[in-house]
Design a protein around this nucleic acid. Structure first.
Length: 538
DNA sequence: CGCTTGTTGTGTCC
DNA sequence: GGACACAACAAGCG
């Protein structure tokens, strides 16, 4: 193309300038470059019916993080002589209209393995090919191409971390220069009759009633992500010796992990660039190794992306060949208590408050509440907890979120259902004084440390003095952990036996039968108590 | 079939 | 802080 191309760079994730092969390609030999982000009203418009402020799909914290990331991207593009063109509408229809209106002959966007993008991209690509528009969709969100790994494994994804590591080996780009600085970009061409917006504010999108008392301390955008990365890397010793299971989930003034996950989720930070930076630190020093090392965490991310892509119905129990079929109970009452931080277990409730306010909680805190909701205490379906995380986390990532819920509920990957996190003693060993609880549940701030993890055991006099009466100022616990966790173990055992007997081919009918049996067998004191309450209220 | 391996449990004992 | 019992799982490999 002698006169140069009219190129459209479609931003979805990869909200960055550095290590962005699609952007690089789009800017090469182009007369005009149109950098586009499409706001889908279904994703961004307020939904007053949702259980937390935000849209129907995302809580307010993640929408804010995305808008901050877009603003940052826009100002970086402006420094390079370009800008971000924000459009509103159905993403596929909007992109197709732009392609026509602007006579685009080259469309560039990052490959995305999530089902949502797979079907969206299919539509856009099929139009592009019929219209003679060249498309360029590089894999740059993950370290490896998940399709290649699946192919290498004979068409099925590896199901253990170690087999994944063996298949993956070293990434092809390990020692190439990824972060080639861009000094300028081609100009944006005429936009014709397409309505172009600036990056909107939350208020402009109609979100106004969000809480202001304590919001996420994490700001979106590539600049912020790179700054955070620099901070992390400046502590070489910490990077080299990082071991994931050893972090302190109750540390919140200074989190025990990098909190780079939200930047990786939106692609504000390139996972490949991060990988190279860690490798640089490792060069001359003794360091931890996967799976627990910092580099190991990036490999976990790729592992889950690969399994997720190669597993039909990965985000469901039914029809998911790697998921155990378990007769989770259908109690919305218990789900809501968990979601609204009213379980009566301060450690669990404090975590759920931090999740709602910050949109981020420590990895082990995620384990505690996920285990508690599913196989540990409440026996509620992992898909319901998954939905809550999906909405509230600023770093919620389709493959990782579903993969971790499968893991924690002992539905796949991990099967030792007798290992249950105690909602009392797990937090206590990190934070014996309960500072974390006092911060996120101020109603308990004056409870003596002897009782703060189990306030229902505090004598009434102590409760009065702490101005926190259990059952009035703070809820009574929704189940008794000792008996509930024992019941969960037994239920899991029976469900596993059924899965084994039927070789995983458990029908809806089998599951209903087992559920009925279990309910008869294992009704604990609380369960009886709860059903009596329900009957009374009916 | 038997053996090894698997990121991250709890409670008790020394 | 390390060892052990607890009660015990699945996947992968030979």
């Amino acid at each position: 193309m002698a006169s140069g191309s009219y190129s459209l760079m479609w931003f979805r994730k990869a909200l960055r300038i550095h290590d962005n092969p699609a952007l690089e390609h789009a800017s090469r030999a182009s007369s005009f470059l149109y950098p586009v982000f499409v706001i889908d009203p279904r994703y961004m418009d307020p939904d007053p019916g949702a259980f937390s402020p935000g849209s129907s799909r995302a809580g307010i914290n993640r929408i804010r993080f995305l808008l901050e990331s877009l603003s940052d991207l826009d100002s970086s593009l402006k420094k390079l002589g370009s800008r971000l063109l924000v459009l509103k509408g159905d993403p596929d229809q909007t992109i197709i209209r732009c392609l026509k209106e602007w006579n685009i002959n080259r469309l560039c966007f990052e490959y995305d393995s999530e089902p949502y993008y797979q079907s969206l991209d299919e539509k856009v690509k099929s139009f592009a090919s019929s219209a003679g528009v060249e498309t360029f969709c590089p894999v740059s969100h993950t370290l490896f191409n998940p399709l290649e790994i699946i192919k290498k494994n004979g068409g099925r994804p590896p199901l253990t971390y170690q087999s994944f590591i063996k298949l993956a080996e070293k990434p092809s780009w390990e020692s190439s220069e990824l972060n080639i600085p861009i000094s300028s970009l081609p100009p944006v061409g005429d936009v014709g009759s397409c309505k172009i917006f600036d990056v909107p504010t939350l208020r402009e999108l109609g979100h106004s009633d969000f809480e202001l008392d304590e919001n996420t301390p994490f700001q979106g955008g590539e600049s912020e992500g790179l700054k955070r990365l620099k901070d992390v890397l400046s502590n070489q010793d910490w990077v080299a010796n990082f071991e994931k299971p050893k972090g302190d989930p109750s540390a919140f003034h200074k989190p025990a992990t990098t909190v780079l996950s939200p930047y990786l989720k939106f692609g504000c930070l390139s996972s490949r660039y991060f990988y190279q930076c860690i490798n640089d630190v490792y060069k001359d020093v003794k360091h931890s190794v996967p799976p627990v090392s910092l580099l190991g965490q990036l490999l976990w991310r790729d592992f889950f992306y690969t399994v997720a892509l190669g597993t039909p119905n990965f985000d469901k129990m039914k029809g998911n060949r790697i998921c155990k079929q378990i007769p989770w109970n259908e109690s919305d009452e218990l789900l809501v208590a968990w979601r609204e931080a009213r379980t009566g277990y301060p450690w669990i409730d404090a975590i759920m408050v931090q999740l709602r306010k910050w949109g981020w909680i420590h990895h082990l805190a995620r384990h505690c509440v996920a285990c508690f909701l599913t196989r540990g205490d409440l026996f509620v379906h992992w898909e319901k907890g998954r939905d809550v995380f999906e909405r509230l986390l600023i770093d919620s990532d389709w493959a990782l979120n579903n993969g971790n819920w499968l893991w924690l509920s002992c539905s796949s990957f991990f099967y030792q259902y007798n290992r249950i996190y105690s909602p009392v003693s797990f937090g206590k060993k990190y934070d014996p004084n309960g500072n974390y609880i006092r911060h996120f549940l101020p109603v308990l701030k004056d409870m003596p440390k002897e009782y703060i993890y189990e306030p229902w055991t505090a004598p009434l006099g102590v409760q009065t003095k702490a101005k926190c009466i259990i059952g009035k100022d703070y809820p009574k616990r929704v189940v008794c952990h000792d008996s509930a966790s024992k019941d969960c173990r037994r239920k899991m055992g029976e469900a596993y036996a059924l899965n084994q007997r039927l070789h995983g081919l458990v029908s809806e009918h089998d599951l209903t039968n087992l559920r009925r049996n279990l309910e008869e067998k294992y009704q604990t004191a609380e369960m009886n108590c709860r059903s009596k309450r329900q009957k009374r209220s009916c």
